[in-house]
Simulated scan of single mutants.
Amino acid sequence: MKKRTPLLIHGPRQVGKTWVLKYFGKEHFEDVAYFSLDKDESGLRDIFRTTKDPQRIIQQLSFLHGKKINPQTTLLILDEIQECNEALNTLKYFCFNMVTGFVR
């Protein structure tokens, strides 16, 4: 099993960061789970405020995604993660507590 760790991509607005991640996900993963923390209409930020446990976070994100997020076959994109400090801080738990991490 490959070990994956979170990846943070920084750059100016509107240069294609999200597009390239979605494209990469379609080409190299069975599924892409995309979430934007910019407009938190679904209560997404509350997930990260209530737990730091990656397994529980994945379960809750799977519910919002409408299907199971599999760490080995799903690329998890947390767009605009800087809008939620709790989500950003959770990335270290993905690194340390899970065999497989996720990508932003």
Rank of each mutant, 00 (worst) to 15 (best):
M1S: 12
K2I: 14
K2W: 09
T5A: 07
T5G: 03
P6N: 09
H10Y: 12
G11R: 04
G11V: 06
P12S: 11
Q14V: 04
Q14G: 05
W19G: 08
L21V: 03
Y23W: 09
F24W: 13
E27M: 09
H28F: 10
F29I: 00
A33R: 01
Y34E: 04
F35A: 04
D40H: 14
E41F: 05
L44V: 12
R45G: 15
I47V: 15
F48C: 03
R49V: 07
T51S: 12
K52P: 00
D53H: 14
P54C: 07
P54E: 14
P54K: 13
P54Q: 10
R56G: 03
R56L: 08
R56S: 11
I58K: 09
I58Y: 13
Q59F: 13
Q59W: 07
Q60D: 13
Q60S: 15
S62N: 06
F63T: 02
L64V: 06
K68A: 09
I69H: 03
I69P: 02
I69K: 02
P71H: 10
L76T: 01
L76A: 03
L78G: 10
E80H: 08
E80V: 03
Q82V: 14
C84A: 12
N85Q: 13
N89K: 13
T90V: 04
L91N: 05
F94G: 11
F94Y: 15
C95N: 09
C95G: 02
N97A: 10
M98Q: 10
V99Y: 00
T100E: 06
T100M: 06
F102S: 04
F102Y: 12
